[in-house]
């Protein structure tokens, strides 16, 4: 990696000021370190944000919970109240990386992590995401890639938390130019849908400070499928959330991870599910709607039946 300066910010203003010189924020550092070591980024300065006030708190309100950006993935995994209130979020956190990674990984970092596409991460391929003129994956080894995209790049979002947050209709609060800007998960990743060089909608200097989760949906669930049983990325993941009363779904939301640059949500499917009794057949019809128009490539067609199964199972898991 290239030599860089290192500074610890104690206020949001100084953090923004410091990072302005081609800098990057540093929290858990899992993703940042990998990007630095492979020369995928070469910032002039790393701005440690772990001393910024209030970012490590979980505030449990009646209408919504606020989860600070520095809360670790392990804290979410191990918090019994989160497991009770947002079981889908707890389940998503428990599947992230390894225990060692979860211990230091932050909520903000999990959301802001960059693409895991093996062409992007490879030191000797210049793909579109890195400013090249070709999406190698589209022509080559695309087993881990997207079924949907808004541009040429087919690198998918792999953040488990983003998928779980999407189903819970949570918003990331982004500090942009000194102002708090709420972004749905759809909005947070819209940039990756549109622009092959982005992996989210964050601009230089933007900082995720917390995530706000409405408590409106009392049931939630998350399932991921990987090659390996532990310490492996999801091939496909799915999160669902709703209120269940008398066996009927109320305000349901489903999000699928790893099949699109954004947590994949289909509003028509959410509407279809609303007010329905949760049966195999209903879940299956919703899965059909969510996966309609999927564009498989040479090696990732398996994601369609896999996602179909996960959507059905995650919805049925809402019943507990």
């Amino acid at each position: 990696m290239k030599a860089f300066q290192y500074a610890t910010a104690h206020s949001f203003d100084s953090a923004r000021e410091l990072v302005a010189d081609n800098g990057m924020y540093l929290a858990g550092g899992n993703d940042t370190l990998g990007l630095l070591k492979e020369y995928l980024v070469s910032p002039n300065i790393l701005v440690n944000i772990k001393s910024l006030p209030g970012l490590d708190k979980i505030e449990r309100g009646s209408d919504s919970w606020k989860i600070g950006a520095l809360v670790t993935v392990a804290q979410i995994e191990n918090d019994p109240q989160i497991a009770k209130t947002f079981p889908g979020l707890q389940q998503a956190a428990a599947e992230v990386g390894s225990q060692q990674i979860r211990n230091v990984a932050s909520v903000g970092g999990n959301l802001a992590q960059h693409s895991r596409c093996w062409y992007f991460r490879h030191r000797d391929t210049l793909c579109m995401k890195k400013g090249g003129d070709l999406c190698y994956a589209r022509h080559g080894e695309n087993r881990y890639h997207s079924l949907f995209t808004g541009n040429t790049c087919i690198s998918p979002v792999v953040s488990n938390l983003a998928t779980a947050f999407a189903a819970l209709d949570a918003k990331a609060i982004v500090l942009r130019d000194g102002k708090e800007t709420p972004m749905t998960m759809a909005k947070l990743y819209q940039g990756a849908w549109e622009n092959p060089q982005s992996h989210n909608s964050l601009k230089p200097g933007d900082l995720i400070v917390r995530v706000e989760i409405p408590t409106a949906r009392t049931s939630s669930a998350f399932i991921q499928m990987s090659d390996k049983q532990a310490f492996d990325w999801a091939l496909v993941s799915c999160a669902a959330a709703a209120n269940l009363s008398g066996g009927k779904l109320n305000s349901p939301r489903v999000a699928v991870g790893c099949i699109s640059p954004v947590p994949w949500q289909v509003e028509a499917a959410n509407q279809f599910l609303d007010g329905k009794e949760l049966t195999d057949d209903v879940a299956s019809q919703a899965a059909d709607m969510i996966l309609k128009g999927a564009e498989p490539h040479e090696h990732n067609g398996y994601k369609i039946p896999m996602a179909h199964a996960l959507i059905r199972r995650t919805l049925l898991k809402l019943k507990g």
Binding site: R143, L235, E295, P296, H297, G301, Y302, P305
Partner: peptide
Amino acid sequence: PAKVLAALGKVPKANSAT
């Protein structure tokens, strides 16, 4: 999993246009 699903005939063909 991809090969198992393919062996079971559950994987649709790639969209050749893409």
